[in-house]
Amino acid sequence: MTFSPTLRPDCSKCFAVCCTALGFARSADFAIDKPAASACPNMASDFSCTIHQRLRPRGFSGCTVFDCFGAGQVVSQRTFGGTSWVKDPESKSSMFAVFKVVKQLHEMLWYLSEAEQRAFDPELAATARQLTMDIETTSQGEASAVLAADVGRLHAEVRALLMEVSEEVRASYGAEGRKMPDGGIHPGADLMGANLAKKQLSGSDLRGAYLIGANLEHSDLTAVDLLGADLRDTRLHGANLSGSLYLTQPQINAARGNRETQLPERLTTPAHWI
């Protein structure tokens, strides 16, 4: 049977790889320092989180933002055949290294899925499908094959495609060159703390923009390219993001919103919004 990796995390099928492989420093997002390749002290023996329901009040909001795009269960159950790094300590370094690569591959698959669906040009859609197949094959390979993948090349190819599809989708909204009083809406714009409430932003390019603490309440972000935009503490109450481009769950988890915030179908409303 052909394996089709899910892009949604299933922690019940993972060996808490993200809670172990990755490190973090004590900050507003994490209450403690944790070196990479070390188990989080909040991890239980069955790989569950002992404070999962209390992460934010306990100072671990960074954990609630993180999303592996389903890489954890794929690496745990497929690449390493359901044998954990606890049962096979020698697999630990390899498993963690593979996880970091597969997470990148799955994030690319997330974007490609949307690009294929929204492309107007059949050739762009076909390119997205081919890239998806290539990356799926790589992510499903043996550990050595995953680690040998040319992730940089794949990133470049995917990025080029995403930009072409973005230009297609945004073109119909006539937002090219749209200016704002603070200097303009453009890729990489510094809009930290900006007041963009109740704005018609449809078709704008905010790829890689800094929107930390910005106010986008009740604004229309249909076909707005948000690839890599920093939405930490961005106020999205009542905003329409249902048709935005390249939005991810981690971006939404890092933002602030409410039940009135309209999200793309494949994203879920974060628990801390409610």
Rank of each mutant, 00 (worst) to 15 (best):
R259C: 01
A71E: 02
G23A: 10
G188E: 12
A229P: 11
K34L: 02
C11R: 08
G62L: 04
Y210L: 15
W110R: 04
A149M: 10
G70Q: 03
D233V: 11
L267Q: 11
R207G: 14
F47E: 01
F66I: 00
M95F: 08
Q77I: 09
T248E: 14
A160C: 10
A171W: 07
T138E: 08
D46W: 06
C68S: 09
Q53I: 04
Y246P: 00
C68A: 10
N42R: 14
V65Y: 11
Q117K: 14
G188S: 12
M133C: 08
R78H: 15
F96D: 04
Q140L: 15
R207W: 05
E157V: 05
C68N: 01
D121E: 13
I252A: 08
K34V: 07
G228H: 09
M95S: 02
D225N: 15
S27V: 12
L263E: 04
L124Y: 08
Q130Y: 05
A229N: 03
A16P: 03
Y173L: 06
R153E: 15
C40A: 11
L221S: 03
L241G: 08
T6A: 14
V151I: 15
D29M: 09
I274V: 13
C18R: 01
I212S: 12
S166C: 10
A197T: 06
Y173C: 09
F120S: 15
A149R: 06
M95N: 02
V65M: 13
C14A: 11
V151P: 01
G213F: 06
G152R: 07
D230L: 14
G81Q: 14
V158L: 02
A156E: 15
L245D: 02
L22R: 14
H106Q: 13
E142H: 13
T268V: 12
H237S: 15
R56N: 10
